[in-house]
């Protein structure tokens, strides 16, 4: 039976999941340098061991209000194809396995957020996990390279 392993995290009251294979590491929030004139969802850039990588604010991507940094705030560093970037989340919760059949396509109406960033919704008992579509998170342009 096909299974997916996910890293889950919180954003406000919602719970999200990303494919663990895409997660490079999870770090505390380092100083973030704001980049003037950058797209609004780019919070800034950070120094990740000598590499400068952009950080996306998921709250911005999903139209949620900004919150102050807490002890639980993290940056999940992802690698999507050749690009490395971070997403800022309120808290990382756990790593879990989910049966592929328990994942449903994103519902058209029910979600208040932009569905182009959502790959599907996973059900684990009573919990609902929103699975991120990582190809579109970063500008929506990252998906073209290898598709030919």
């Amino acid at each position: 039976m096909a299974e997916e392993q996910l890293v889950t995290f919180n954003l406000g009251s919602e719970e999200f999941g990303v494919d663990i294979m895409r997660v490079q590491e999870i770090i505390r929030i380092p100083p973030i340098t704001r980049v003037p004139k950058a797209p609004s969802y780019v919070e800034g850039v950070i120094n990740l061991r000598g590499n400068v990588i952009p950080v996306v604010s998921l709250r911005n991507r999903f139209g949620m209000t900004r919150v102050e940094e807490t002890d639980l705030s993290r940056i999940v560093v992802l690698q999507v194809q050749s690009k490395v970037f971070g997403i800022r989340v309120d808290a990382v919760t756990e790593v879990l396995r989910i049966d592929s059949e328990a994942i449903e396509p994103p519902p058209q109406v029910a979600l208040s957020m932009d569905s182009q960033f959502i790959r599907g919704v996973g059900k684990i008992g009573e919990r609902l996990l929103i699975l991120l579509d990582l190809d579109n998170i970063m500008g929506g342009e990252t998906g073209h390279e290898l598709s030919t």
Binding site: P31, K37, V42, G50, V52
Partner: peptide, 27 residues
């Protein structure tokens, strides 16, 4: 000089980034 990557490469007024002695990124 470090590149800002594809996504942030063509911003007006910004040529790239560098990392200062304190580890912070500077544009």
């Amino acid at each position: 000089i470090k590149s800002l990557g594809d996504i942030l490469s063509n911003l007006p007024g910004i040529a790239g980034a560098t990392i200062l002695g304190d580890g912070k990124v500077t544009l």
